[in-house]
């Protein structure tokens, strides 16, 4: 749609700006202020310059958390994106069963995140959970509170359970926008199922898939609630992802300076990803008109 040039539209946006400035800009400025100072409590601050940044950049703890975070995001992307596409390809295309699948698949997306954690915390327990009990009965040792590998498997399966449907629903929307003519042409060419997927469906889904990948990456990058409820970051620090570590530092130990420096770097990374996301999205919208 053509938009009219009208600078008075600023007045319509003003309430949002005031509100978001209050809840985003002021806190961010505070974080910057804290990041260059040390405190003994009671609002007694003194200047330390870039010391906290230097400390955090050389802190093994932060790099370890970042490493775990990247590993987590990479694993869930490699599982969720192909699985989501696969599910979308197998979904009924119309009729009652299509909406049935849509509603059922939306269900995990809309469960409160801490309840997602609770569900899997219970489900995976060896004594009372269906999953843990079954695995135990099959003779597989599985204890997510003690065993690092089991803890990782649990939070990954949980995230797959929670979010694969989002990828599937986005891919499904992309598939439905492919006109019939494409399939008819493929049929005339006697294209194989794989060729149809590779040369018709995949290119047509590229746009939504890009959005799905970026959304999943970003949300997994700042995941907090679900793993916190299930493992609390343990055993040891094995599942302490970036957000969990940051909250431990900021609110658990109340280390304002280091936590603030950590926050700023975390935020800068998120800012870059958001920018890529926004640029990709607006360019897609331009292309599709």
């Amino acid at each position: 749609m053509d938009k009219t040039l009208n600078h008075k539209a600023w007045f319509l946006v003003l309430p949002v700006i005031v509100l978001v400035a209050f809840s985003a800009v002021i806190p961010l400025m505070t974080v910057v202020n804290y990041s260059v100072q040390d405190t003994f409590g009671n609002n007694q601050f003194f200047w330390v310059g870039l010391e906290w940044f230097e400390e955090m950049l050389h802190s093994e703890r932060m790099w370890d958390a970042l490493g775990r975070q990247l590993l987590f995001s990479a694993i869930i992307l490699t599982i969720q994106i192909p699985l989501g596409i696969f599910v979308a390809l197998n979904m009924p295309k119309s009729g009652f069963w299509s909406s049935f699948c849509l509603v059922m698949m939306s269900l995990p997306l809309l469960i409160p995140w801490n309840v997602v954690g609770t569900i899997w915390q219970i489900f995976g327990r060896v004594d009372i959970g269906l999953l843990g009990y079954t695995l135990d009965a099959l003779g597989i040792s599985y204890n997510y509170t003690q065993d690092i590998f089991a803890a990782w498997v649990t939070i990954i399966v949980m995230d797959v359970w929670h979010w694969t449907s989002l990828v599937a629903l986005l891919a499904f929307a992309g598939l439905k926008s492919i006109p019939d003519a494409y399939y008819q042409a493929a049929k005339i060419d006697q294209a194989s199922r794989w060729a149809i997927f590779r040369y018709i469906e995949l290119p047509k889904m590229m746009g939504v898939l890009m959005i799905a990948i970026l959304l999943r990456f970003m949300d997994s990058f700042m995941i907090y609630t679900e793993p916190f409820v299930v493992t609390g970051g343990g055993p040891g620090n094995a599942t302490t992802l970036l957000s969990i570590d940051l909250v431990k530092m900021a609110l658990g130990q109340f280390d304002l300076g280091p936590a603030a420096a950590f926050s700023i770097m975390y935020y800068l990374v998120i800012l870059i990803i958001s920018w890529v996301f926004y640029t990709v999205m607006t360019n897609l919208e331009k292309k599709e008109g």
Binding site: I26, M29, T30, V32, N33, Y34, V36, Q37, T39, N43, F45, W47
Partner: peptide, 15 residues
């Protein structure tokens, strides 16, 4: 404003 812990360098940075 005191809780925001302003310093001159950060203030100049934001200015």
């Amino acid at each position: 404003m005191e809780w925001m812990a302003w310093t001159w360098p950060t203030a100049i940075f934001f200015i």
